[in-house]
């Protein structure tokens, strides 16, 4: 199971950031060719990302590229570049329906065949940024075998809903809808960016909320947020200790051919064992919460 707690946005036109971002070790790095790049730099950013993706420093980190929408003059060229360069995941912005993903998937498959890349090896994720996208979240999440996740994008969404960012009330329905769609589809769910990078307290409060809701992680705009996020997602010592005991009890029951697992007199079923394994995986990835 791939951990995707942190997805760090990098402006695709910024050579310095593209050259150094791997040192911050987010779970995924997302090169942005869309909103972070001005119209006159789209061509140069596409080339920078094309070459950065092939740089060996990004071999051991999951790479994501947010392309421009396919109905713009840039989207298809972005896709040609990044699929050929070996990107792990293409992030489609402003996804309103499953048809948007189907259109993307057809183009990805065409490019994979043209460049000799294994068909199906380019994974996809969709950013949901509108009321239509939220209402169609389930059909979007289940639209393709290539889908690894869906992300809520807060700014455009609240504009579409004729409201503004606040204490999170304005995102409550969308967060729950996106999260449920992801869980039904068996893919990951990513929360919105927290744009005030100097407000650590506010950031951590939001992280605590989305972690409780069940999000896998969050899109980030500053490397400083990575450690804060990973620490908040790290299990406590008590969590790890309990998870070890659950897994040990499950393994013992399996060795003894017992159908029912018990720990301290309480029955433990498969979801609890799976949760315990996820806790141990998180502990291995990020240590115990400080």
């Amino acid at each position: 199971m791939k951990l995707r707690r942190s997805m760090l946005f990098l402006p695709g036109a910024n050579a310095a950031m593209l050259s150094t971002a791997f040192v911050f070790k987010p779970d995924s790095i997302m090169f942005d060719l869309e909103d972070a790049v001005s119209l006159r730099e789209k061509d140069a950013a596409r080339l920078l990302v094309f070459h950065a993706l092939q740089n060996p420093v990004y071999r051991d980190i999951e790479t994501v590229v947010r392309i421009n929408p396919l109905n713009t003059p840039f989207g298809l060229a972005d896709l040609e570049a990044v699929v050929r360069a070996g990107v792990d995941i293409v992030r489609l912005p402003k996804t309103d329906s499953a048809a948007d993903v189907h259109e993307l998937e057809a183009e990805v498959e065409r490019i994979e065949k043209a460049c000799g890349r294994e068909v199906g090896s380019t994974k996809l994720m969709a950013a949901i940024e509108s009321a239509s996208g939220v209402v169609n979240a389930l059909s979007i999440a289940t639209s393709s075998q290539r889908m690894i996740g869906i992300a809520l994008a807060g700014f455009d969404y609240v504009m579409d809903m004729q409201t503004e960012r606040g204490d999170g009330t304005e995102l409550f329905y969308a967060r729950c809808a996106v999260l449920h769609a992801a869980r039904v589809a068996g893919i990951d769910a990513f929360d919105v960016v927290y744009s005030d990078v100097n407000d650590e307290e506010g950031f951590l409060k939001e992280v605590e909320l989305i972690k409780k809701l069940g999000f896998n992680g969050k899109s980030l705009i500053n490397p400083r947020q990575i450690e804060l996020l990973h620490n908040a997602y790290a299990p406590t010592e008590e969590d790890v200790d309990y998870a070890h005991r659950v897994v040990a009890a499950a393994e013992k029951a399996e060795r003894e051919g017992l159908g029912v697992v018990a720990l301290n007199g309480k029955m433990i079923d498969a979801p609890i064992v799976n949760h315990a394994k996820r806790v141990l995986q998180k502990a291995q990835a990020s240590g115990v919460r400080k």
């Binding site: 050579a15 593209l18 061509d43 920078l48 094309f50 950065a52 740089n55």
Partner: peptide
């Protein structure tokens, strides 16, 4: 002090433009 990948990208962008 650019990396090789940035040099390739910038040279290509300037030439193609």
């Amino acid at each position: 002090g650019a990396l090789d990948c940035a040099i390739r990208a910038r040279v290509q962008a300037a030439i193609l433009r």
